[in-house]
Design a protein around this nucleic acid. Structure first.
Lengths: 113, 113
DNA sequence: ATCGAAGTTCGATGACCATCGAACAGTACA
DNA sequence: TGTACTGTTCGATGGTCATCGAACTTCGAT
């Protein structure tokens, strides 16, 4: 059925992923760097992304960005123990917007300020 | 040479087109609708885009959006007579980010509010 | 139970942005 | 030479966003 929401109402279903929201989410260099990181390294937890991707921000700020990426339908979150693991929804994005994520990830990564 | 600016210093050279700026420019539904219009109809002047694309905004606001699209390297402007004609920089965008524009334009267009 | 670690939520703040009306600068035409 | 049209520039305004510190919750380990 259309319009179905996920468990906690944050992550949209595949058919509800909206292009402007995806583009807005990826337009932020820090969020783009985070997405690049999980695309290359696979499922990662928050502190790992912040540190190893070199994101110049605190945990509250990253939590804010994570929410935007989830609400856009770009990443999904899985909780295990005390950690929250995030991963790229590649199949869903490919189904909704074929070629979009690949062309974005193929672009040269700019250094995060 | 790298870093070269265009005639009026607004439109970037091909190698200076930056991905976050392109994504931010296309993240606005009104700008995306304008880009879709010129991609489908070819070179068009401002009043034509506003009216025929059904953009709910005044001329000053469209001029603002046009500037952002030009600064992002998405469209170019040509002045003839009293009119300013805008067109999509498809070849430059394809060279810089292969497949990006095609995947965006291939997505279903959402009605402009 | 206690302590530390992982993330989230909650204001608050400063910056940026979309929007408009008014005024302006060109161009075309009568 | 006016007159009408095209589009830009200039404040001003209301809204959204990225950022942080502080406080909180949950989990794991001691």
């Amino acid at each position: 059925m259309l319009g179905t929401v996920m468990d906690d109402g944050v992550e949209p279903a595949v058919q509800d992923i909206a292009l402007p929201r995806v583009l807005a989410a990826l337009a932020d260099p820090h969020r783009l760097a985070a997405v690049r990181f999980v695309a290359r390294r696979g499922e990662s937890w928050c502190a790992q992304v912040i540190e190893e991707a070199g994101l110049p921000m605190t945990k509250p700020t990253f939590s804010h960005h994570l929410r935007i990426l989830r609400e856009a339908g770009i990443v999904t979150k899985r909780i295990q123990g005390a950690r929250g693991y995030m991963s790229l929804r590649k199949d869903d994005l490919d189904q909704r917007f074929p070629g979009l994520i690949d062309s974005i990830l193929a672009a040269d990564a700019e250094p995060v300020s």
